[in-house]
């Protein structure tokens, strides 16, 4: 098994964190994993992306030339990375901020992660709704392990942050069954 995921959005949407949580959850499951960021001069704004590779074998290049899955949080990122998805690959798309041609050959999971996050009460957790959607769509990492990671990295005592992230994750996970 090898799963190559490119995660992209605008700076500030929590793209790097999404990838790191995913990588840590994969590590918790005992899988091999690499997380590789774009490390250009952009600090805020612009498009931001990272690459996560999860495998049960030794991983070669952490740089992904052809992705199995794209997780895309805004339109410019979709334009930039859709060419990197393999044929019939999986696209997890934030429909609040990006639209795609319905006749595409990709396997598309398009949901309004940003709107879901706003309903929960914190726009910043759109990334975790997308992660929940990925977890249920690809069955590579378990939600309970993502929750373990949340608990290990959440600022001590800040239960509200933990709660909104957890809620976003769970709502994202439910979407595919709707």
């Amino acid at each position: 098994m090898i799963e190559r995921i490119i995660i992209a959005g605008s700076g500030g949407q929590g793209v790097m964190l999404l990838g790191k949580v995913m990588a840590q959850a994969a590590m918790v499951e005992g899988k091999q994993v690499t997380w590789f960021p774009a490390y250009g001069p952009e600090v805020r704004g612009g498009t931001s992306h990272c690459m996560v590779t999860i495998s049960d074998q030794e991983i070669g290049s952490p740089y992904i030339t052809e992705a199995d899955t794209l997780i895309i949080l805004n339109q410019p990122s979709l334009e930039k990375f859709k060419g990197k998805l393999k044929r019939k690959g999986t696209l997890i798309l934030n429909s609040s901020l990006a639209k795609i041609d319905p006749y595409t050959k990709m396997q598309v999971f398009s949901f309004p992660f940003t709107d879901i996050a706003m309903q929960i009460g914190n726009i910043k957790v759109a990334n975790m709704a997308a992660l929940g959607c990925f977890a249920s769509a690809k069955k590579i990492i378990k939600v309970k392990n993502i929750l373990k990671v949340f608990k290990s990295i959440a600022p001590a005592g800040n239960l509200e942050i933990l709660r909104v992230n957890q809620q976003a994750l769970e709502e994202g996970q439910k979407l595919n069954h709707g």
Binding site: V33, T34, W35, F36, Y39, P62
Partner: peptide, 9 residues
């Protein structure tokens, strides 16, 4: 740069 930036267990 890849070795430096890449995260692994």
């Amino acid at each position: 740069g890849i070795l430096g930036q890449m995260m692994e267990p």
